[in-house]
Nucleic acid binder design. Structure first.
Lengths: 204, 204, 204, 204
DNA sequence: GATGAATGAGTATTCATTCAT
DNA sequence: GATGAATGAATACTCATTCAT
């Protein structure tokens, strides 16, 4: 890493926080440089434009997501557990506690949209490998694995990352996952125990 | 309808088109009133703010969507066909030809997000009734119908309304739908013939 | 009073309250008609313009002020007491309890300015008569009565109607009044007992 | 003074003139930048808002007023002459010929109000020192000097800065000033000779 | 007497970006 | 590498007033 890169990384970190908490569109370049204590010129020395900075912030998020996924894959846990681990890691809030659910707030529609799209693209092959492992082990039985994985990711994002969900949502999700992957009934039911009850419908 | 309401409806229609083609955020009030040939004051006489106008535009879309869904339900077609018809109607482009896919373009993330959310909420009970009908007829066999419906809507939106999709996506979707609803293999395979091939991967 | 005059009087009353509490410039015609439950056209049927309405509101205030002053003059109290009574009545808050000091708030600079000017013009001759009465009785001894009265009104407005004042301000005011009118030391010292202590410096 | 400060000072000077001649509220930001030949952004780079600019303009006026007062205090003239000099300097028009009485025109109520308030606060201690000097010299004899000073300022502003005044107003003002400060009859009568007759009642 | 839809000039403010130093 | 003064197009919204019905 070059010398000037260090400051750039700091800037990305600051912007990442601000975009997440206030939304990309509600965060002005002025606010970023004020928080970073740098001059306007310095900002534009490092980034061509605000939008390009957003891309870099997102890349940073995606990279860290891939990292996490790879770590999970390398763990000594069962295939179903790896799947659930990777899906759960899509939610940044699981990792970064102080920032709570903000990526999924209305002010963050644009950023969520971009992240979600790339995340699905990037996680699909990784998760596909895991599923294939499961197929090889005889736990799953299915074809068109990448397409099934994509669907899995779409559903989990749509179900758990927006608004609230109920116990029934979980049970249907488990049922669907098993059938989608051609697993035996009950294979994925351990999911239920992992869910953060505080986010469930009716919870305060 | 009161007298003043007529002009308001015209305005909503114009804004609906503009929001859809250029995106909500990229459409300025100035552009709307210029197209509508009215004065600034007239605009603000009818709408408290641009955002409130967006809400009304969305309400209009939702209302028309409900109307369409109800018509489909009333038709003399099979239950699986009703389901597919309602799901397909979520895409406004099927109805309004001139506006092509724009609701799902990047500039329309915000609007798509809002519409999608409400659409799912509003279509879920309607579609649930249809599924129940199918259960009663013995075509389907499942519990937690509303949750399954919601998942169906999330998937179809995520799969077909964003970016491109392949034949494999369709076949997985059909498989998943059948299993999600507890239908016999092949029940939904007629879907494949309905898909607009021009939107498929590889197609221009 | 004509029939239509009744509604006009109601409107003036409503506007008077609004102007006083929110300031003339911060009160829009829309807000007035909404509170009065009338149409725009009706408003402009009764008033040529918003500014002309302000004049009428001020006239209303001045008229009521004159009325009060005349009543005080007619009372069976001493000349010094009449003087103080009239001066005190300049503050609308003494009469209209719910509206507290608002005429002298920053948002009401314009209205205060206009009222103050007219009030001084209108009260000067009335108060001059009272002073003359005092001269005739031998309590006061001075020439140029109207000019002295005007000065008295300017001081009392500037001292008591804006911001806070202290006991020393009162004692200087009393001293000055006595000397300005050529009264014996102690003639006006009863004023001190009448002052609303709650408005004094240091008071909560 | 930093480099960027120079342009800011120019802007303040321009705004000062415009606020004075046309009134604060009647001067738009557009007009200011057009006269200053700068871009909108430049204006908002230097000032947070139009209102904040007004505060800075007023501060500038107050500062120059204090400067003038201090110069007068340092002069080799009699105490009564110092007093009159300071009071007279409250009127900016005495100093800045091109701007004629505008601060006291109806369109300037707001600005006059703000200036007047601060001016009284700022001049009171300065003038009090002068009075104390006079007391020490045996010319005046009084207590509660700051309160008397404040009253003096209120009266002179109310009498000479608004509308017209007559010879009688002057003579009453002189009489009152002498008595307020406990001076011998005739001490302040030189004032009469200093008054600009062109502003007196009857004069055009 | 009363209505309310229509007007349109006017206003302050935002903000990503540039560039000479 | 870094600065910060300058840019100017863009934007949403206000509000007193008019007038046909």
């Amino acid at each position: 890493m070059k010398k000037g890169e260090k400051r750039k990384q700091e800037l990305l970190k600051i912007a990442y926080d601000m975009f997440l908490t206030r939304g990309y569109e509600n965060t002005s370049v002025d606010e970023i440089i004020e928080k970073a204590q740098i001059a306007k010129g310095t900002y534009y020395y490092h980034f061509q434009s605000k939008e390009q900075m957003l891309e870099e912030v997102i890349d940073m998020m995606i990279d860290s997501e891939i990292e996490t996924a790879k770590q999970i894959i390398g763990m000594d846990i069962s295939v179903p557990q790896k799947i659930v681990g990777i899906i759960a890691s899509m939610k940044p809030t699981e990792v970064e506690q102080p920032i709570k659910d903000t990526l999924f707030q209305p002010e963050n529609v644009l950023m969520h949209h971009k992240v979600r799209k790339q995340l699905i693209d990037v996680l699909t092959p990784l998760l596909s490998e895991v599923i294939q492992e499961g197929v090889d082990e005889g736990i799953f039985e299915c074809d068109n694995i990448p397409e099934r994985v994509k669907m899995l990711l779409i559903i989990s994002d749509g179900t758990f990352n927006e608004g609230t969900f109920s116990e029934r949502d979980i049970s249907v999700f488990i049922d669907m996952t098993e059938k989608l992957l051609g697993a035996e009934n009950g294979t994925m039911s351990f999911i239920y125990d992992l869910i953060d009850k505080s986010e469930m419908e009716g919870a305060q």
